[in-house]
Structure formats: C-alpha cells, structure tokens
Computed example of a mutant assay.
Amino acid sequence: MPPENPYGALLREIPVQRGEADVLGGRTAYWTYGPPDAEVTVLAVHGFRGEHHGLEPVVAYLPGIRVVMPDLPGFGETPPLPARTHDLDAYAEWLTAFAAATAPGAVVLGHSFGSIVAAAAVTGGLSTPALILVNPIGAPALEGPRGVMTRLAIAYYTVAARLPARAGDALLRNPAIVRVMSATMAKTRDRRLRAFVHDQHDTYFSRFADRDVLHDAFVTSVSHDVREFAPAVDVPTLLVAAQKDDITPIEKERELRTLFPDARLVEIPAVGHLIHYETPHAAASAIQEFLADVTTR
C-alpha cells in the first residue's frame, strides 16, 4: 500500500480537469486546477524526470488560483515532439506555443529544470505579467555543493545512452538508482514525508518516453542555467530558493537575484531541492504574496 499523501485532503477540495492540446505537431497532456473564473492563472512547468504530479502539493495551498500544468514533451502522458531534438530551443518553443493555446497571459512558473525552460521562453517572446522560479537552477550544475554527484550523473546518462537500447532503458529506470536519487535530495527527517517523497519518485520518475528524450533533456539541464537569461527578463520575478539545495547553493541564488532587473528572493530553510514536496506551504505563501503585489501594480 502506498504511503498517505499528506496533501491529499487539500487537493481533493480543488477541482481538476484533464485536457489535451495540439502543440508543434504533437499532443500535450495538461491538467487545470482551480476555478475556471479565477482572477489569476498560473502556468506551471515541472522539473527534470518529473511530471505534473510533482507540483500538486504546491497547488494544494493555492486555492482560488487557476493553475494549468502540462507534462513536458517526452514525460508523463505527453509524447515526444515529432522529429525534434529535445533541447532548450525545442522546450522553450513548445512552452510558448502551449501557453498561447491554453493559458494566454498566465503567470509563468518553473521548477528546477522548468525554471530554465520558463526563463528561456519568457526572454524568447512568451508574454507573461510575471515569472516565478522555484528551486531555480542558478549556476552550472558542476559548481554545486555536490559536483561529484553531478559528474556521476553525467556518467550514468552517458553510459545509458551508449548501451543497447533495452539495457540502457533498464539502467535509466532501475528502481535502486531512482531511490538513491530520491534519498540524496530529500532533507526532511519526517519518516512519513520521506516515504511519500520516495513513493512519488518511484511512481513518476521513470515515466519518460524513451532514453533518447531523457538524454536530450539531461544534456539540456546541465548545459544551461537561469543566469544566461536573467538580465533579459523584463517582468517582475520571484525566486523561491532552498537554503540546503545541493543543485544550486543559496549563495548562488542570492547572486542570481541581482542579475534580474526586478526580482525578489524568498529563502526557505531546512529544505533542499524538493521544496515542492517538503515545504509546499511556504512556497505557496511566497507565491500568493507575490501574485497579490504584481496583480495590483
């Protein structure tokens, strides 16, 4: 029996509908949470190897806000983009087209890898009144406090890409390796919450289409960071960062804030790269306060 979802009761109070949109010649699956007549709509983009479920705990604490959450191409229920390399240009173009089709004028939110995609899309022409980045990738991955782990991850994905297809796919979906990734990122000491986090990763971390898409996305995730786009972001921006993040140290997040023309930084203590699972209430509170400010300007 899977562990209890600590945010399940709140989520059950929020209406949700599944939809599909034709984007760049492919089909994108997405979910819309909250009232259809809400004053504010947020378009939320999940992180690497994840899917829309990962951001649901944050949505649980955003009642009254309409949130549109797609599965990225090649992940969850969204097939890969036809005849495309899944690099940053492709993901940014996809997000821009998806926003135009389903949530024009929405506030854009990106988590982790989604922060890179969101920032690239906004500076590339995606129109939005504001940008929210949760656990933003604010520095090259190899500069993080666990650069050795990043090098091991690069080796892991490289080997998987070079093995015969079946063997490479099995390596990428190996449950023991997925659990190591989950245990490395989790910071909470709450046993029930850790069990929930691990179950989420066990359930959703291997729902990628194939190893080629996953390799493309991984290369993109370690080849770019938000710094290269920050100076060109011309809308108010909220950075929600973790003080124990192993991917981007908090010192780098503080530096990242200074690169934006108009940005604020909210730091959450005692959590790492899993703000969306471990401290979603704190993230949602920061988001609500930010949205209240930018919608009254």
Score class of each variant (00 low, 15 high):
residue 6 P to K: 09
residue 7 Y to P: 02
residue 8 G to P: 02
residue 8 G to H: 10
residue 12 R to L: 10
residue 15 P to F: 08
residue 18 R to Y: 05
residue 20 E to D: 09
residue 25 G to Y: 08
residue 26 G to C: 09
residue 27 R to C: 04
residue 32 T to G: 03
residue 33 Y to D: 12
residue 37 D to E: 15
residue 40 V to I: 14
residue 42 V to Y: 05
residue 43 L to R: 04
residue 49 R to S: 13
residue 50 G to C: 13
residue 53 H to Y: 12
residue 55 L to R: 06
residue 56 E to D: 07
residue 58 V to I: 15
residue 60 A to R: 00
residue 63 P to A: 11
residue 63 P to D: 08
residue 64 G to S: 05
residue 65 I to D: 00
residue 72 L to G: 01
residue 74 G to R: 11
residue 80 P to W: 06
residue 80 P to V: 08
residue 81 L to H: 10
residue 85 T to W: 10
residue 88 L to P: 02
residue 89 D to T: 13
residue 89 D to W: 13
residue 90 A to W: 02
residue 90 A to D: 07
residue 95 L to V: 07
residue 99 A to Q: 12
residue 100 A to G: 06
residue 106 A to G: 07
residue 109 L to N: 00
residue 111 H to C: 01
residue 113 F to T: 09
residue 114 G to C: 06
residue 114 G to Q: 03
residue 116 I to N: 00
residue 119 A to N: 05
residue 120 A to D: 03
residue 122 V to G: 02
residue 122 V to K: 01
residue 122 V to R: 03
residue 128 T to I: 08
residue 134 V to S: 06
residue 135 N to G: 13
residue 136 P to N: 05
residue 139 A to L: 14
residue 140 P to R: 10
residue 142 L to D: 10
residue 144 G to W: 01
residue 145 P to E: 12
residue 153 A to Y: 10
residue 160 A to L: 08
residue 163 L to M: 09
residue 164 P to T: 05
residue 166 R to A: 15
residue 168 G to S: 05
residue 171 L to R: 07
residue 171 L to N: 00
residue 181 M to Q: 13
residue 183 A to T: 12
residue 186 A to S: 15
residue 187 K to R: 15
residue 189 R to Y: 02
residue 194 R to C: 01
residue 194 R to N: 03
residue 195 A to G: 06
residue 196 F to P: 00
residue 196 F to T: 02
residue 198 H to M: 08
residue 198 H to W: 14
residue 200 Q to P: 01
residue 202 D to R: 15
residue 212 D to Q: 15
residue 213 V to N: 01
residue 225 D to R: 00
residue 231 P to E: 12
residue 232 A to V: 04
residue 232 A to Q: 14
residue 234 D to R: 14
residue 235 V to H: 09
residue 238 L to Q: 05
residue 242 A to N: 00
residue 243 Q to F: 03
residue 243 Q to T: 14
residue 243 Q to A: 15
residue 245 D to V: 04
residue 247 I to Q: 11
residue 248 T to I: 08
residue 248 T to E: 03
residue 249 P to W: 13
residue 252 K to I: 04
residue 252 K to F: 12
residue 257 R to H: 04
residue 258 T to K: 12
residue 258 T to A: 13
residue 259 L to E: 03
residue 260 F to T: 01
residue 260 F to Y: 13
residue 260 F to C: 00
residue 261 P to G: 10
residue 263 A to V: 04
residue 265 L to E: 03
residue 266 V to S: 11
residue 268 I to Y: 07
residue 268 I to W: 10
residue 270 A to R: 12
residue 272 G to A: 14
residue 283 A to T: 11
residue 287 I to S: 02
residue 289 E to F: 09
residue 291 L to A: 07
residue 294 V to F: 04
residue 295 T to K: 06
residue 296 T to Q: 14
